[in-house]
C-alpha cells in the first residue's frame, strides 16, 4: 500500500531523484565547525516562525507598539516564550553567522570554486545585521528609540548623500511613525525576501560544489 503511494508520488515528483541529489551525497569527512551554516539556517527559520507569531499581536505604530509588546509579554499565553526566543535568537543568529564566516575564512573555503558562495554569504551576513538593526527599533522603547536615532545619524554623516540616506531611513528629518513603519516593513518583508533568495542561491551552490574539506598541510 505505502509502496504504491510512494511509487505514484515518485513518478510525478521524482522523490528518488531528489533523495539522490540532495541527501545521498558524498561529503568530505565532517567536522563540528561545519554545522554552523545549517545552524544559521535553523535560526533563520526559527526567527521567521516566532516573528510570524509576533506579528499577530504587534502593532507598528508609535502609539501602540510598546503596549502591544507589553501585552504579548503579559497577556498572551506563551507570548513571553515566543518573544524571548525571537529576542535571543536574533543575537545568536548574528553570532552564529559571524562565526560561520570566520570558519570559512580560516579554512580558506572561499577559494576556487566557491568564490560566489562567499559573495552570497557576505550578503547574508549584511542582511542578518540589517535584520538586527531594523528589529531593534520595533519595541519602541527608550533603548531602541535612541539607539536608532544615533544609528541613523551615523549613516547620515556620509558625505554628499548623507542627508538623503538619513531621510530615506527615517522617512523625514526625525524618527516618527514613518520610521517605525518602514523599519517594520524592512524587517518583515524586504530583508527576509532578500535573505530567502540569497539562502536559496547559497544552498544551490553548496550542493553544486559540495562542502569544502579541511585543508591538509600540502594544500
Amino acid at each position: 500500500m505505502w509502496k504504491k503511494i510512494f511509487d505514484w508520488l515518485d513518478e510525478r515528483l521524482g522523490l528518488n531523484d531528489l533523495y539522490n541529489t540532495l541527501l545521498d551525497r558524498p561529503e568530505p569527512r565532517g567536522n563540528w565547525w561545519n554545522t554552523l551554516g545549517s545552524a544559521s539556517l535553523f535560526l533563520f527559520v526559527l526567527q521567521g516562525l516566532t516573528g510570524i507569531f509576533l506579528t499577530i499581536y504587534y502593532t507598528p505604530s508609535p502609539d501602540h507598539a510598546y503596549d502591544s509588546i507589553q501585552y504579548i509579554m503579559e497577556g498572551v499565553a506563551f507570548g513571553w516564550l515566543i518573544r524571548g526566543i525571537h529576542h535571543w535568537g536574533a543575537s545568536l543568529m548574528v553570532l552564529v553567522v559571524f562565526i560561520h564566516m570566520l570558519r570559512v575564512f580560516v579554512t580558506a573555503s572561499y577559494k576556487y570554486p566557491r568564490e560566489l558562495t562567499w559573495f552570497i554569504g557576505i550578503g547574508l551576513l549584511l542582511a542578518t545585521i540589517g535584520m538586527g538593526f531594523t528589529g531593534y527599533l520595533l519595541p519602541w522603547n527608550q533603548r531602541s528609540y535612541w539607539a536608532t536615532t544615533v544609528g541613523t545619524q551615523i549613516a547620515g554623516t556620509a558625505p554628499l548623500i548623507g542627508e538623503f540616506i538619513l531621510k530615506a531611513l527615517r522617512g523625514g528629518p526625525d524618527l516618527s511613525a514613518l520610521t517605525l513603519q518602514r523599519f517594520f516593513s524592512a524587517h518583515i518583508w524586504i530583508i527576509p525576501a532578500i535573505l530567502m533568495a540569497l539562502i536559496g542561491i547559497h544552498l544551490y551552490l553548496i550542493i553544486k560544489h559540495g562542502e569544502s574539506h579541511f585543508p591538509k598541510k600540502d594544500e
Binding site: D24, R25, P26, E27, R29, T35, S38, A39, F42
Partner: peptide, 17 residues
C-alpha cells in the same frame, strides 16, 4: 574518504540545532 550527507552530516546538524 568522506561520509554521506544523509545521515552523517545531517545528524551533526540536527544535534547542534
Amino acid at each position: 574518504k568522506g561520509e554521506r550527507f544523509w545521515p552523517d552530516s545531517i545528524f551533526k546538524d540536527v544535534i547542534v540545532s
